[in-house]
């Protein structure tokens, strides 16, 4: 099998409007943060190649609009997805409560054939925090999410980690390391943030 036979994986980003889905993707793709980036309407599509453990995979990132009424479109996008990243905003209790609805939507469309990943974004907003790390973890566990992380796309905190963890759950890497576990030594092109001392501070 030649190298040109790249595997591609479809990752959909879901969650209420304004939780930071587009910002997470933009941080990962271009390593920038812009608070004036236009609200997503409809669907955006980006793809990026990741090199990891001497293997290459192509990630297709599907960004969706958060407003409730645009949701009827989403099933056609969730279809065929390998990973669903469901994002809430740690400074918004409401966005956290509505996670259940999103997870349900994914399960209706994909059953168990999808890796669910829960992300609490904006963890730089320490003063405004409304959802604790423990609550987030508990919810992730309850829904059988393979990955749970708090991130800040504003500061770039844990964003690379998130995508690395996602890549690690893909069939390509299953043999190499257990999903959801840190495996810093095998990473080639990405620096790992120290996720064990989650103090909301970033090195950048």
């Amino acid at each position: 099998m030649s190298k040109s036979n790249l595997s591609k994986y479809k990752i959909v980003f879901l969650g209420e409007q304004n939780v930071g889905k587009t910002s997470l993707i933009t941080r990962f793709m271009y390593d920038t943060f812009d608070s004036t980036y236009a609200a997503t309407i409809g669907i955006d599509f980006l793809s990026k190649t990741m090199y990891l453990d001497d293997k290459t995979v192509r990630l297709q990132l599907w960004d969706t609009a958060g407003q409730e009424r645009f949701r009827s479109l989403i099933p056609s996008y969730i279809r065929d997805s390998h990973v669903a990243v469901i994002v809430y905003d740690v400074s918004s209790k409401k966005s956290f409560e509505l996670l259940d609805k999103w997870i349900e939507d994914v399960k209706i469309e994909r059953g168990e054939n999808v890796i669910i990943c829960i992300v609490g974004n904006k963890n730089d907003l320490t003063d405004e925090r409304q959802v604790s790390l423990q609550d987030g973890e508990a919810k992730a566990k309850a829904h059988g999410a393979k990955i749970f992380l708090e991130t800040s796309s504003k500061l770039g905190y844990n964003v690379k980690s998130l995508f690395k963890k996602i890549a690690k759950t893909l069939p390509e890497f299953e043999a190499a390391g257990k999903s959801g576990e840190e495996g810093a030594s095998e990473m080639i092109d990405i620096n790992v943030e120290n996720t064990t001392t989650q103090d909301g501070q970033c090195q950048c």
């Binding site: 409007q17 304004n18 608070s35 004036t36 980036y37 236009a38 609200a39």
Partner: peptide, 13 residues
């Protein structure tokens, strides 16, 4: 809340 969120990110260029 919704309106403010969106006007902050409309055509800001």
């Amino acid at each position: 809340f919704r309106i403010e969120k969106d006007i902050k990110r409309t055509d800001r260029n």
